[in-house]
Nucleic acid binder design. Sequence first.
DNA 1: GAAAAGCCTGAAGTGGCTTCAGGGTCAAGG
DNA 2: CCTTGACCCTGAAGCCACTTCAGGCTTTTC
Lengths: 138, 138
Amino acid sequence: MQIGELARSTGVKIETIRYYEREQLLPVPQRTDGNYRLYSPRHVEQLRFIRYCRSLDMSLEEVRILIGVLDTPSGSCQTVNALLDEKIVEVDARVNELHKLQDQLRQLRGHCQQPDEVKTCGILMELNRSAGIDKAQI
Amino acid sequence: MQIGELARSTGVKIETIRYYEREQLLPVPQRTDGNYRLYSPRHVEQLRFIRYCRSLDMSLEEVRILIGVLDTPSGSCQTVNALLDEKIVEVDARVNELHKLQDQLRQLRGHCQQPDEVKTCGILMELNRSAGIDKAQI
DNA sequence: GAAAAGCCTGAAGTGGCTTCAGGGTCAAGG
DNA sequence: CCTTGACCCTGAAGCCACTTCAGGCTTTTC
Ligand SMILES: [Zn+2]
Ligand SMILES: [Zn+2]
Ligand SMILES: [Zn+2]
Ligand SMILES: [Zn+2]
């Protein structure tokens, strides 16, 4: 299986696959006489694993760690648990931030119902006012 | 006021301030004889404006647009409204994604209560299983 | 007069890719 | 046999919003 087919069958761009190889996330594949990469089912599996971890918001460094753990099957899975716990805390925090942001954005948007002149626009006035308040708080 | 004081009074790193100047988000300041930058209250205001917009998740390009709008006070504020509406949609979408992610992470974490061997860890088994399912779905 | 604190510049590094420039390889069609 | 087109290769640069680094100048303080 060459790179194009791997790309099609996983939905990962060819350049990304080559990038993962450079980053040592995918094992170096065999080559044909014409220097084309040749992938095995094991590569397909590992690539899917990487993408699934990425979809869970893990960094490539974290994925690298998980792959390392998988390669020592008799070790403990404590690293994995810690990594997930940390990730959960991170995501929760980010969600809280974004909820606040949603409130702020909607409130700000409410300051201008229909477009008016820049100099009297409630949004712009509010943006400047809020920047000033932040100043007072610091 | 020189750069260190501006940095302290706004909580923005010196390097970031210089970066904003290079990116033309802050007007070029005066210089002392010793070539030190000298800032006016107007700079303070604009820097705060930038940071407040950034805290609302706007890109520097969007901030640049807003600053441009502010500089033409007789124009319409339609750009501002459109920008905010788009931002609200973006943030809502991101929040929905993260909520799904929270569910997935917690469910995954539930697959390993106390650390065991890598080869029997429910989390790792689940990670591999889910990556495989994604495969079947594509 | 020397150390410390503050400032300067230009370049490179970060993450996770994407894009680009400039090629080589291989199967099918004329 | 040759050309077209699909496919593949490499190394380098670009993206964003900064941060870090290397190496040096200015000003203040003891
Ligand atoms: Zn308005
Ligand atoms: Zn208000
Ligand atoms: Zn486990
Ligand atoms: Zn499950």
